[in-house]
Simulated assay, not measured.
Amino acid sequence: MPNLHSFPSTPFIRWFVKDNQSLDRDIRLKLLKGPFTSRAALVAAGMNTLLVCSVAVVLHPTLFFISWLVADMVIWITRWFLLQRFIASGKSRRRYATDLSLLFGLIWAAEIGIGTAGCIISQDPVLQVLACTSAVSMNGAIAMRNQGIPRYAFTQILLTDIPMKLATLFQPEPMLRVLILQAPMYLTGLWVLLNNLNANLTKAYISEAQSTHSATHDKLTGVLNRLGILNMMTALLSSKANGDSVFCVLCLDLDGFKKINDANGHATGDRVLVSFSEMVTRVVRKGDAVARIGGDEFIVLMPDTDKISASLIADRIIKSLEDYTGKNANYEGLGVSIGITETSPSELGSVGQILSRADVAMYNAKSAGKNCFRFG
């Protein structure tokens, strides 16, 4: 499932999500997704705070509590709008969508903290119990929902908790000030919990990424394997079905590889395959995909390209391999036959049909004398 959010753009908001800078970009995006998932959780949080605010207004219809109720409703509606308009709709690529969503999450936490402080100061035991219970439960929800970004989550907890603790200094019951003494243990415990949750979540995402990589990449060369390239081609066909771009597939087969492998041993053959895959990866464009689909056969997928560009790449691959074999006497006779097929939206076909055309073109190149390319 694609990430429906992006990294923050402003330095202020970026600071709150810098807990995992050393990780892969995709993993960091997954860790950031907490505030943008589960609309049900946002609804539940909104109903909870609305209930507390409403009870406060009913019991004490003062300007403070009326303002708290209005502010709570406005902030919740804004957060819901941001989630629906930019994130859930897939329009989060708008530059400040993520920043605004995270910023209003902080404002929401501060609003809860200030309102809870007002309930403490009111000296109403019903409000005090209701507001404190609500704040503590919200902190637990914050820790669970935003465990991927502990710095942001802990800031929300501080904004919720500190005003409540300080408010005990402005009411007459001295025993309530025990909450201030309790604060260091409570906050330390939540910080440890957040970091443990984050560590476990990070390990899970890393394991998932490693498992996916192992399933879609060739263990010897590190390039994509058959499954990996088939997945990419399937995705490309789906995205191009209603588009107007063409793409090319190159089927590569090493000529003379079996002879070299038999004469020099499998270790040498493996080095040839690794060197060839690295050479092809250097030659192709940044957005192209290279795969080893078995033995000495490779595939290059070139999105948004045509026969002319594909033929230039094929020619570079052939010449690069000639340079490689020229510097290694043991690899004399090694070459590459390349079959190229161009696919347009009007003749997409299936992945199997496209690969079959490229394969036939590759055998035509072999029949034409090897170490050349032909179109299918």
Rank of each mutant, 00 (worst) to 15 (best):
149 I>A: 06
334 L>H: 01
342 E>W: 05
63 L>K: 15
118 G>P: 08
211 S>M: 15
104 F>H: 02
191 W>T: 04
224 L>T: 13
235 A>P: 00
77 I>L: 13
65 F>Y: 14
173 E>S: 06
366 K>G: 05
327 K>F: 09
90 G>H: 06
287 G>W: 01
49 T>K: 10
97 A>H: 05
252 L>P: 09
83 L>R: 04
146 N>T: 06
336 V>Q: 14
162 I>S: 06
75 I>C: 00
305 T>F: 03
6 S>N: 14
350 S>V: 05
364 N>V: 15
260 I>E: 03
284 V>C: 06
110 A>F: 09
139 N>G: 12
178 V>D: 02
107 I>H: 01
266 H>P: 05
118 G>C: 08
258 K>R: 14
344 S>K: 13
81 F>G: 02
156 Q>T: 10
254 L>D: 11
97 A>F: 11
220 L>N: 10
308 I>F: 13
270 D>F: 09
202 T>D: 03
6 S>R: 13
101 S>C: 03
184 P>E: 03
85 R>W: 14
50 L>C: 09
275 S>W: 12
300 V>E: 02
25 R>W: 12
188 T>D: 12
117 A>Q: 00
204 A>I: 01
167 A>W: 07
104 F>M: 02
55 V>G: 08
294 G>E: 12
315 D>R: 03
139 N>Y: 03
256 G>F: 09
55 V>E: 09
184 P>N: 09
166 L>V: 10
230 L>G: 01
67 S>P: 02
221 T>P: 04
265 G>M: 07
143 A>I: 08
255 D>A: 11
125 P>E: 10
52 V>D: 01
223 V>F: 13
1 M>W: 14
358 A>K: 00
31 L>H: 01
3 N>H: 15
172 P>H: 07
227 L>H: 07
155 T>I: 08
272 V>F: 00
111 E>K: 01
13 I>C: 11
295 G>P: 04
129 V>I: 15
300 V>Y: 00
159 L>A: 10
199 A>I: 00
198 N>C: 10
41 A>V: 09
247 F>H: 04
243 G>Y: 13
219 K>D: 09
242 N>R: 12
265 G>V: 06
197 L>Q: 02
92 S>G: 11
321 L>K: 04
76 W>F: 12
338 I>Y: 04
141 A>P: 00
212 T>E: 13
265 G>Q: 05
204 A>M: 03
136 V>G: 11
54 S>W: 10
210 Q>M: 08
23 L>V: 14
